[in-house]
Design a binder for these strands. Structure first.
Lengths: 348, 348
DNA sequence: AAACACATTTGGAACGTTCCAAATCGGCTA
DNA sequence: TAGCCGATTTGGAACGTTCCAAATGTGTTT
């Protein structure tokens, strides 16, 4: 077989810097410096070393390096729910930025399970992760974060605030988001607007509900209790929410949804009842996931641009790694109203 | 602060097995064995060692262990497109099964970029990944796989076959899938059926198209060339596909879509034109992603149950790790037709 | 009492890096 | 010539595990 550089026979020990050192007649210290791109080594020597390394088919051994350096280039990333495209897109952004910066992503999925979350965090600690990015599972206790803090490993909380403000955090301005969404519907003439989400569903729910309430008040509209519809934040929840909304005595003409997947459920249920969102009933989502541009009908939503939020979040952690002692960092993405066809002027 | 087991002052070296050994007055070999759960050590001794370990706040150091063992518990997982929920759900299944088996997932996203793919694979090699799971980027060359094989790291190809049959592979029976989908439409009375996908879009496209063609033939139906509609396998592609389909002289009454997101695009476009999928035009997807149950209308699709496929795939790699020399493993998930509202009897 | 089997424990040499302190090498200056 | 300086290079002790070979302890059998 021609053209093969280095097919060493299978059982053989793979080459180490010591082998390179021998081959290039330098010390292993020199080789190490070359591999780290140190300017101390003469260019000529460096070139020779690199040549030998290539010829031997050398592979850098990070376990060894990490052991000695007492550090790694791995970032542990814990995601609560990858089946929600919002988090999938967020993860894409996170990973992209981390990779650019030379870090590698140790990913774990909790499926909102607290036990699993504890387990994977502990595991990432064993692997000596340089930092952690945590999209906390629902109901994560602040105590867990205190514990992680004791680990002395930088952690960034994403999306769902947990614990006090002493942790680095990246998320979006939830209240401003639903505030804008509600104003949008009000401006289209809607006066009876429902809010679909899990009542008591944590701080994110609370903020989004508050933005809704504030906008209603500002618009001089009242909120009937029954418009705060209590459903799980899922597609099924969205369907149930619409069913409930349409059955109300004081029937709303539109709904702000806790997030996009709830909104998708809502669109589905409306369709099933022969109603067209945007004409017969208005629906606004929250998140700005890609599917929203091509749902039926395309979804009016509050976009936080999840991939970009992921990148910003990763950047925040990178900054923290560079300066472990600086005061808590915080990034609140300003969400943007994207008007599509699922919202429309109310029929008069 | 009461209740804190071990808040050693920040600068201090974290404890090692040697420290535990001292504390429990045994040798570090003993400690090592205890931590590995070896049955060689007397239960009583083991308990004492574990106690001391806890008291010291000991954390297992995997870099050190991996260095010595010349192996790791990390599985490198490379995903081409996480923004497609199919792959996100697949990843969930993969990670779940790997975690159960005590492995940790080193995740990288390529966004279908070949350069990125090469880079992340090389990086995973440096990290001494015990195995690799690859959802290859579009147009991945078999040469890359040969190269990985030379690395002596077990690799499992997922979803898109690349290279010869000598690699472990997990995917689904694409031809059987579209065969069933097409029969379904035919049984509903459809005679003119379009196929929406990227012509020349690799082996998966080829197989799905073939299943479609075979079913049409079996049903005694002919396929007009113009029904093979060439679009990118995206939501936008699905919209474009429907636009093209509806403009044809010999206008189809239904379409088999390359995958679910194409189908979603199709639903969106139909809606925008005031057509109701399932009544005015039938749409069938492929993949069985969760959204399909709550799209508007809910999507008839060929489900491969992506999360389960992920679990099976991970299991395949685990089997391979246990027996590196066994002949190539292969898993073809049998897809299942799920009939929902997006397909219906053709209007006569 | 010696010899043996078995259960338990241990010393210490790896694993492949990094990085400090020190050595070496060429000029150059005094 | 001796001394010095900056640029390069090097020896070797870590880093925290694992695991082999050997040692020790405890009965049991001869």
């Amino acid at each position: 077989m021609p053209g093969q550089t280095s097919d060493r026979s299978p059982g053989l020990r793979s080459p180490t810097i010591t082998d390179i050192a021998k081959g290039a007649s330098v010390s292993k210290s020199t080789v190490s410096l070359v591999l780290q791109g140190s300017p101390l080594i003469k260019a000529e020597t460096a070139a020779r070393v690199r040549e030998v390394a290539d010829a031997l088919g050398y592979v850098y051994n990070r376990s060894a390096a990490d052991l000695r350096r007492r550090a790694s280039n791995m970032i542990g990333t814990v995601i609560n729910d990858l089946t929600n495209p919002f988090f999938a897109e967020l993860l894409v952004g996170l990973e992209r930025r981390l990779a650019e910066a030379g870090y590698v992503t140790l990913m774990a999925h909790t499926g909102e399970d607290l036990r699993t979350q504890e387990r994977v965090l502990a595991s990432m600690r064993e692997y000596h992760a340089a930092g952690l990015i945590l999209c906390p599972a629902f109901d994560t206790s602040p105590a867990l974060l205190q514990q992680i803090r004791a680990w002395q490993i930088p952690v960034l909380i994403v999306v769902r605030p947990v614990g006090d403000a002493s942790f680095d955090f990246a998320g979006s301005d939830n209240e401003a988001g639903t505030f804008a969404a509600t104003n949008h519907l009000a401006e289209l003439g809607h006066q009876r607007i429902a809010f679909l989400g899990r009542v008591g569903g944590g701080p994110v729910y609370e903020l989004r509900r508050r933005g809704f309430a504030r906008a209603m008040r500002d618009q001089g509209l009242t909120i009937e209790d029954e418009w705060l519809i209590d459903i799980p934040p899922t597609r099924e929840g969205g369907r149930a929410g619409i069913r409930q909304a349409l059955a109300l005595r004081s029937r709303p003409t539109g709904a702000i949804c806790y997030n996009d997947i709830v909104a998708f459920g809502a669109l589905s249920e409306l369709g099933e009842r022969g109603l067209r969102a945007g004409r017969d009933f208005s629906v606004v989502g929250f998140d700005g996931i890609a599917d929203g541009a091509h749902s039926n009908p395309p979804l009016t939503t509050i976009s936080v641009d999840p991939a970009r939020l992921g990148e910003s979040a990763a950047q925040l952690l990178l900054t923290r790694l560079r300066d472990p002692a600086s005061p808590p960092l915080r990034h609140l993405a300003q969400p943007r109203l994207i008007i599509r066809q699922s919202s429309g002027r109310v029929e008069t």
